[in-house]
Simulated scan of single mutants.
Amino acid sequence: MKLIGSAASPYVRKVRVVMAEKRLDYQFIKEDVWADDTTISQSNPLGKVPCLIMDGSEAMFDSRVIVEYLDTLSPVGKLIPQQSRERAEVKTWEALADGVMDAGILWRLEATWPKRADTERSQAWMDRQRAKVEGGIAAMSKGLGDKPFCSGIHLSLSDIAVGCALGWVSFRFPDIDWRGEHANLAKLCDKLHLRPSFADTMPA
């Protein structure tokens, strides 16, 4: 398998962490989708990463689709439960984490996209996205409470999604002091970063 993506993307990192936890072999192909010479549309018509290329050149995209598929490839470290209620809980955690990343990316693009003049940037839009990021992090903290992991007592996709989202927020928005405000999330992330899957995929 080949994974096309960026080392800075939190969605790509989520897939890479899952692949490491599942002990799956793959080739990582770095791609800057914002570069003028990007070829990502040849694999994903939406021009986004991550994109997983399977044997036979078949492409799969969207991190949620990819990680669900990867979890079926190996019985090692099952990350998504089979039971409907537990499964829905894990997928809801993933949706919350992805929502934080979605809002953060919209915020960052509005603030930094070089093809937009400073006079064209909307502070109200950026404030709205920041509120979503901070609100989502507060919801993560409330949902985690004093549990060892987001969805019970074992690592699941919930924790991987949350860890990748928070790691990206720290990477792109260091002024957001989520660690100081949510000690339980900081404790969870410190525990996650002891795992090689997280330590080896730090955003850069």
Rank of each mutant, 00 (worst) to 15 (best):
residue 2 K to M: 03
residue 2 K to D: 02
residue 6 S to E: 05
residue 7 A to K: 12
residue 8 A to T: 05
residue 9 S to C: 10
residue 12 V to L: 02
residue 15 V to I: 01
residue 15 V to P: 00
residue 19 M to Q: 11
residue 23 R to P: 04
residue 28 F to Y: 07
residue 29 I to F: 04
residue 33 V to I: 13
residue 36 D to T: 12
residue 36 D to P: 14
residue 38 T to N: 05
residue 41 S to R: 13
residue 46 L to E: 12
residue 47 G to R: 04
residue 48 K to S: 02
residue 52 L to I: 07
residue 53 I to K: 14
residue 59 A to T: 15
residue 61 F to A: 00
residue 70 L to C: 06
residue 71 D to P: 11
residue 74 S to E: 08
residue 78 K to I: 15
residue 80 I to C: 11
residue 80 I to L: 12
residue 84 S to T: 15
residue 85 R to F: 08
residue 89 E to R: 13
residue 89 E to P: 07
residue 90 V to Q: 10
residue 91 K to F: 01
residue 93 W to Q: 12
residue 93 W to N: 10
residue 95 A to R: 10
residue 102 D to V: 00
residue 103 A to D: 07
residue 106 L to P: 01
residue 115 K to N: 12
residue 117 A to W: 06
residue 118 D to Q: 08
residue 120 E to R: 13
residue 123 Q to V: 14
residue 124 A to F: 02
residue 136 G to V: 13
residue 149 F to C: 02
residue 151 S to P: 03
residue 152 G to T: 07
residue 153 I to V: 13
residue 154 H to K: 12
residue 160 I to Q: 00
residue 163 G to M: 01
residue 163 G to L: 02
residue 166 L to T: 09
residue 169 V to C: 05
residue 170 S to P: 03
residue 176 I to T: 05
residue 183 A to K: 15
residue 184 N to F: 12
residue 185 L to Y: 10
residue 185 L to H: 11
residue 191 K to T: 06
residue 195 R to C: 03
residue 195 R to V: 11
residue 198 F to N: 13
residue 204 A to M: 00
